[in-house]
Design a protein around this nucleic acid. Structure first.
Lengths: 204, 204, 204, 204
DNA sequence: AATGAATGAGGTTTCATTCAT
DNA sequence: GATGAATGAAACCTCATTCAT
């Protein structure tokens, strides 16, 4: 990937995070980069495709880091903690850009973007599922869908806090804290809420 | 509020939920309503003010319903359950429009919208706090900020599920499920993550 | 003329004087009158026709007052002074509305307005011409066109001052002052600038 | 200044002079230039800013020419004549556009335009004052404010004539004629009308 | 590869005018 | 007479995109 393309992505993330995608013009982005408007279209087919590139880059980085965790020879629960820690760190870097993405809805024409996003989400879900089983054993197997939602929910809450307050927390500590909460949730499991029927919805 | 204004709000919510705010044009909204473009501006000062109206309407409905819960003579934990149930139901009605808003960035010009949103968020936080203390006693007082984040996090996860899948769950059951999870979280409390310093950030 | 029509004219003059004709909406006018937008069109065929009505009303008042001066049995130069005094007073009442009119250019469609304005201008010119001949005798006859321009020029300068500063001067004194200046101009007359050829242009 | 910007200004002056500022749409201007609507906004931030640009350009040209007169080694009265001649010529070029502007009302939002206009007006006043003192000596010092109004008044009358009739006069002759009239006015000075109190109003 | 002027569709908004009540 | 909701044309302006240089 050419340096200039990376430059554009970085500045774009910054601006989009601050002002939203629709509200950020190509002009603003190129001005922030100190390049011409035309140059933008050398590296990106369209404004839309910039979004996809950003997400792809983010996906890649995240996947890469997560892969290394899985290759490590450490207890599952430590892996879970690192997994959460990495997400906190990466999301911090890409800040509310990611948040924004979650809110931008799926329109007929961003089918490609939607696909990239969904794929990544599914991969993360799968990872998380493995980590949960590895950490807590088979007793969680009936609760996996619920647990994934719960873990993602509490994680996101703290991510939002980070983003909104623009504060730097100690991510290792936060990840530890979150794992402890997962411990509690697992300890208190009773009847799953999401049944086989609803599972299908999740996989859609 | 005139019928036509309500009609506009309803169609707008639908469209904005589907396509996002920036991407939904006033033209689309008025066409969906079967009225002229000019008519929109009889009922709303601007497109921006429509957003505020929508949020206000939603706020009012939510506040009203929550108030009735607080006036009831039932155990605190039942109130907590009803509180969550109401949110699930209302958010279902207003669909991801609300989700989108909750994550909308603070731009210089939406100051009024931001104010309305923040006020409502703070009121909900306060309610939740009271319900938590009422349900679990003073032992949670040091963990209130964390608990609020955790409860909102797990709730939002299921809300997103509802919205994305456009499925109807049994909200009473889901609320019960969520309260059970809060029980687990409270049972497993150890050291708070959010200290006095970080609390300030939340109240901002 | 119905009371309400007069009310509309008065409020309109006020607003138009402050903000200009194009910039003043019918809505603003009717709001200032405390009537509905529809009511405006009972009394005026269009916004354009309001302008004509205003000018007609102003014309009438001015003509009426000037007529009385001409019927008086006093020296011509006193009549000239009163003539100027009346103009200062009336223009003060109608304030910069009149100024504005002088600036609004003749578009194809205000032919009627243009006609009303021109007619009045010509009548005033004629009056002034008679007053000048009456006051200074035949020696000014070759200079009439020039003198008319000069008198109107110095008068307008002071009118603008009045309007812009929104100050009240003593109009009798100012009229006296202006007549003295006309005396000077007449005393110093040499060769006319406007010849027979150019006269035609004026009469257009 | 790019050629295209100058082209736009020139066509705009023409149209605005004919139809007024509010009545002339950006579309009309761009069509007259043979460019797209969007192109207008490459060269001007807004329609309003076009007005400022026009006035600035006119101001500059006028200032420049007047400066050269002041640097010449000729009698003051000749300078006065040239000063008036230049104004006639320049105003002819910019036609009634300028007239219109000189009478434009002070709206809250044209503060920048108002500032540019006022500054230029004050500079011209100052120049004229110096020329009057230079030409007629200290005896006019008490009458300066009146004289400025008088000179501007008679000048404007002839400018209007020029503009309305779209006729070309010999500006040197007209300027000579006007200076003669100023001679008369100065010769006949008696008591000033504008006192110290009113002077302040003028300087506002 | 890089520029940036130019385009033109489409956005929000205003407003004179009409008409059913 | 009076209302005011409704209309729709037209205004100003933005912006993704193209293309000659």
């Amino acid at each position: 990937m050419p340096d200039k393309k990376i430059l554009i992505i970085e500045k774009a993330v910054e601006l989009i995070a601050k002002n939203g995608f629709e509200t950020t013009s190509v002009q603003e982005i190129t001005e922030a980069c100190g390049i011409s408007k035309g140059a933008f279209y050398i590296y990106f087919k369209s404004k839309e495709s910039l979004l996809i590139s950003i997400f792809e880059l983010f996906s890649e980085r995240l996947s890469e880091r997560i892969s290394t965790v899985f290759e490590m020879n450490i207890p599952a629960k430590e892996k879970l903690q690192m997994f959460l820690c990495i997400q906190l760190e990466e999301i911090d870097k890409y800040s509310d850009f990611i948040l924004m993405q979650l809110r931008e809805n799926t329109k007929p024409d961003n089918r490609e973007l939607f696909s990239v996003m969904t794929q990544m989400d599914m991969k993360l879900n799968e990872h998380l599922q493995n980590l949960l089983v590895g950490s807590y054993g088979d007793k969680v197997s009936l609760h996996l869908k619920d647990l994934i939602l719960l873990v993602k929910g509490i994680t996101k809450s703290y991510v939002e806090l980070i983003v909104l307050c623009k504060t730097n927390f100690n991510y290792r500590d936060l990840a530890k804290f979150l794992v402890d909460r997962v411990d509690s949730l697992v300890a208190g499991l009773t009847t799953p809420f999401l049944t086989e029927d609803t599972k299908k919805l999740l996989d859609r």
